[in-house]
């Protein structure tokens, strides 16, 4: 009845921004980024990627309300780069990792297709178990 529309979980509203930054007033080099229409998929991914950077002192995310599709990502850095720069760097690293993964997967899949073409003829439903390795 008063449930939010399903598309509200992934479509930005009018004038709504994907990301907004609010700098922390008490701690230097700390910011809270609010991501709209995103969830754990992106939140946890960025959180863990940020933690890999030696310049990031703190990174954590939370979803303030389960019915509101947004999350807050808090980042504190050692002032060699701003939280925003750290976030941008994390995003770029992830995009490049995903490209590597895509390439690797294509390569392996083609390889598998060449090797497996002869053997998999009878097992159309794919339920058969072939021992691994």
């Amino acid at each position: 009845m008063n449930a939010p529309d399903r598309f509200d979980t992934f479509l930005l509203g009018d004038g709504e921004k994907k990301v907004t930054e609010v700098a922390d007033t008490r701690i230097p080099s700390a910011s809270t980024f609010t991501f709209n229409k995103e969830d754990h998929t992106l939140g946890n991914l960025l959180r863990s990627q940020l933690l890999k950077s030696p310049h990031v002192k703190y990174s954590g995310y939370r979803i303030p309300h389960p019915l509101v599709s947004s999350f807050e990502l808090r980042i504190q850095t050692d002032s060699t780069l701003t939280p925003r720069a750290a976030l941008q760097q994390a995003c770029r690293e992830l995009v490049s990792d995903l490209s590597t993964l895509s390439r690797e997967f294509t390569k392996e899949w083609e390889l598998r297709k060449m090797v497996g073409d002869g053997a998999k003829g009878d097992d159309k439903d794919g339920k058969g178990k072939v021992p691994g390795r």
Binding site: T100, E104, F105, G126, G132, R133
Partner: peptide
Amino acid sequence: GPRVIIRESFPN
């Protein structure tokens, strides 16, 4: 970077 090993592949 990530690495993938495909163990089985079927049409579905």
